[in-house]
Amino acid sequence: MADKNVSELQPSDFEIVGNKTSETETLARKSISFWGEVSRRFIKNKLALIGFITLAIIIIGAICGPWISEFTYRQQNGDYNMAPNGTYWFGTDDLGRDIFTRVWIGARISIFIGFAAAIIDLIIGVAWGAVAGLTGGRTDEIMMRIADILTAIPYLLVVIILLVVMQPGLFPMIIALSLTGWVNMARITRSEILKLKNQEYVLAARTLGANNLHLIKRHLLPNALGAILVTMTLTIPTAIFTEAFLSYLGLGVPAPLASWGTMANDGYPALANAPWRLFFPGVLICLTIFAFNAVGDGLRDALDPKLRK
């Protein structure tokens, strides 16, 4: 097993120089914050990145689309059911309105509804779940049973009644969507809090005398944020889809306002002679839902702490 060069070594090579312990205490990795690392992993995930870019394009379209178009969404131009061409990029509908403009106005409304519903879910759900999870015991029991009861009521029935009573519109739509939507967020938050509140760093903070508010602010929410964010990203497409679905049933935003759902609803009867009227809103619904799901999944993978050791 001996090495050939060993005999060539000089006695001077064997001078004792001692250890260099301080070198072993230096930290090898560059300092990366948690979110820095998450974004790095997210960018590496191709599907998530594509989703993210798609989303960005749709949002830019929603902001700029109606603005760069020479028509307004309610303007009737006299060209009925025109196929896509140089003037009307996405064609026109049976009232001669420019579909390109309407599709982006619809994007504004759909995305607004999606975000608004998600934010309401977030506020109610996180608060509800955090209080239930942290207090535990009877309070937890009662709060979660209330949530269970809410989900047990047939959702569609409630929404339809609500929309009939309140007259269809943007605001009732958002209320209808958040009525039970927050329950899922509350459950996720609660289970995260339950998991986290027995972590040793939370116990350590308690031994330092921290109160519940401090625990929530410093330890529980920052660490549950990942799961909450993922849930939120996945709530938005559900809300958008539900909006489209309700619109399709005729319960959507009233004319002449457009959402993707109402446009698809209007376009469906003309499928044979003017398929673009269904095609563009339909494709955008699909793309948006795909994009949000891809981003949500990507975020969940990027946040997975198991990859972090």
Binding site: Q199, E200, L203, L208, P222
Partner: peptide, 24 residues
């Protein structure tokens, strides 16, 4: 006294991975 209790009685935990908040 509670403050004093929390300051003068302290604890070291078992798991060096779980006892430090990863976000801080």
């Amino acid at each position: 006294e509670q403050k004093q209790f929390h300051q003068k009685l302290q604890m070291i935990f078992q798991d060096p991975y779980a006892s430090l908040n990863p976000r801080m």
